[in-house]
């Protein structure tokens, strides 16, 4: 009986603690634009955050919250008025301590835990990178909507999708892979076409996207 009480106490403590985590995001008004749980009402102003922990790379996330920049040049594509080219509001900048606390909570938010994580191997060699770039630009038309990098090392590409110019520092490879294979697990309806990719092709695209880093640009 004592053990049972102890268990209830621990459970209660754990539950209130988890609740306190999300409430920190609410205190900082994250929920005014972002969905913090998959059960939340459809929120169309900014990207969902209930899988932030599997989507973003930690150093990037901490830096972004302190010094935000615009990733979606035409605003978030989930908005109904998106095609009318809205000017996106810059993300608020958080003081260093708050940014770290918020990042700590965001990094715990995960949706899919893959049973067998993919090994994305070594960074692409120059020759393989060129072939993967052709996949990215020609075969799957990614650059029609996403900014990547051109042959001169400058950002280029469409502006309706989030910029992938620095995606190699921003996104986790496993998340990009999951998104390419089953976007509906994250979002019921996006504006990006679905592709029926075999695993090998999806991995090549992920490897290519991971090479897109600001530090590699000229």
């Amino acid at each position: 009986m004592t053990l049972y009480r102890l268990f209830i106490c621990v459970l209660f403590f754990w539950a209130t603690n988890a609740h306190a985590d999300i409430s920190l995001l609410k205190e900082n008004h994250c929920d005014q634009c972002h969905r913090l749980s998959s059960g939340d009402k459809e929120q169309n102003l900014a990207p969902d955050l209930f899988y932030a922990g599997e989507k973003f790379q930690e150093p990037w996330l901490r830096e972004f919250l302190r010094n935000p920049h615009i990733i979606r040049l035409n605003g978030y594509s989930g908005r109904m008025d998106f095609p009318k080219a809205i000017t996106p509001q810059p993300h608020p900048s958080l003081p260093e301590k708050v940014a770290d606390e918020v990042a700590d909570v965001l990094l715990t938010l995960k949706l899919l835990e893959p049973e067998t994580p993919i090994n994305f191997g070594e960074p692409l060699s120059k020759g393989k990178k060129v072939r993967a770039k052709i996949l990215f630009e020609r075969n799957f038309s990614c650059s029609a909507c996403h900014k990547g990098v051109n042959l001169a090392g400058k950002p280029h590409g469409g502006e309706s999708g989030p910029s992938l110019f620095n995606a190699g520092a921003r996104l986790q490879p496993q998340w990009i892979f999951n998104w390419l294979q089953s976007p509906e697990k994250y979002r019921s309806k996006g504006r990006m076409p679905r592709f029926d990719l075999d695993q090998e092709t999806a991995i090549k695209l992920v490897q290519y996207i991971m090479t897109l880093k600001k530090e590699n640009m000229k």
Partner: peptide, 22 residues
């Protein structure tokens, strides 16, 4: 409106938000 307008524009004139980059 949801998919095509990103490139072809909301009135179909080929002036969507990606048009200038292509």
């Amino acid at each position: 409106q949801w998919y095509c307008s990103q490139c072809h524009g909301i009135t179909g004139k080929g002036d969507g938000m990606n048009a200038l980059q292509l």
